[in-house]
């Protein structure tokens, strides 16, 4: 750089104006920068340049075209007024109803959570039934007839559907109680509290006259329930098997059904 540009500035000397690139900068860079700052601080924003004269005729024409637009047509006005007066349907409805919607959603979630928490564990129920099926059977006990050889206890667990199972098996062993005459074996599981003395018509021996208040006479043995059943008991009866748990009695009885099916079914 030249000495001229970097050289010292005489004390009190006014920095010369910046002329732009290509011009020599006589004051030192520091002074020059200060002068530039002062100039910018005090400067008013310069007015915009006027359009070039050669552009003026075209500009006049364009301004005329630009500003000469007519007002809205009747059709445009009608369309606008219709649209402007028509409120967006969804938004105000949401604004009005969102507290109710939020409350309903929260209630639904709560119910869902509660039902999930209170629902019985299907795995435990299945395990318990499988354990009952595996429990020691007496010769000639009805439960031996119930499942038949090779029956998967997982599959033969009592279903909620009261419809008797379809199909029959001719090779099914006959029980000594003479139920083989075209009659199928059916299981009736019921809650003691729900069972009426009469029960469903012809559904079970219990319903057909057995006294539900004196089941002890029919009991043959009482043994501990499988662990999956928790603090309950399993009682073998002449006519089936009984579970007792927490004051609830579940009786699985074999009963002849009018159907031709010999498959065990649950009612």
């Amino acid at each position: 750089m030249s000495e001229q540009r970097n050289g010292p500035t005489p004390q009190g000397a006014e920095p010369e104006p910046f002329e732009g690139h290509g011009e020599s900068l006589r004051p030192s860079q520091e002074d020059w920068a200060r002068a530039l700052r002062e100039r910018y601080r005090g400067a008013q924003p310069a007015a915009l340049e006027a359009p070039p004269a050669e552009l003026e005729p075209a500009l006049q024409r364009w301004r005329r075209a630009y500003r000469g637009g007519a007002g809205p047509s009747a059709q445009q006005t009608r369309a606008f007024l219709d649209a402007a007066r028509r409120r967006p349907a969804l938004l105000p409805a949401l604004q009005r109803w969102w507290p109710a919607l939020a409350a309903a959603a929260a209630a639904a979630l709560l119910l869902l959570a509660l039902s999930w928490m209170l629902a019985p564990d299907p795995g435990a129920e299945r395990d318990a039934l499988a354990a009952v099926e595996r429990s020691p059977q007496r010769p000639g006990d009805a439960s031996a007839t119930r499942l038949g050889p090779g029956t998967d206890p997982e599959r033969s667990r009592p279903a909620v559907d009261p419809t008797p199972a379809a199909g029959s098996s001719a090779s099914e062993p006959q029980s000594e109680r003479g139920r083989a005459q075209g009659s199928g074996a059916a299981l009736a599981a019921r809650d003691e509290s729900a069972a009426s003395p009469q029960g469903p018509s012809g559904a079970s021996p219990l319903a057909a006259g057995a006294d539900p208040r004196a089941p002890a006479a029919a009991e043959k043995s009482i043994r501990s329930a499988p662990s999956a059943f928790g603090p309950g008991e399993v009682i073998d009866r002449d006519d089936g098997i009984e579970f007792r748990r927490n004051g609830v009695r579940i009786v699985l009885v074999e009963t002849p059904t009018p159907t031709e099916s010999t498959e065990p079914s649950l009612r």
Binding site: Y66, R67, G69, G71, Q76
Partner: peptide
């Protein structure tokens, strides 16, 4: 004041339209 809607539209349409045109 919804009663002013039509007048406001009639006055503003040319201005807004020419801005859009530009």
């Amino acid at each position: 004041d919804e009663a002013q809607l039509g007048r406001w539209y009639a006055l503003e349409f040319p201005v807004v339209r020419r801005l859009c045109l530009g």
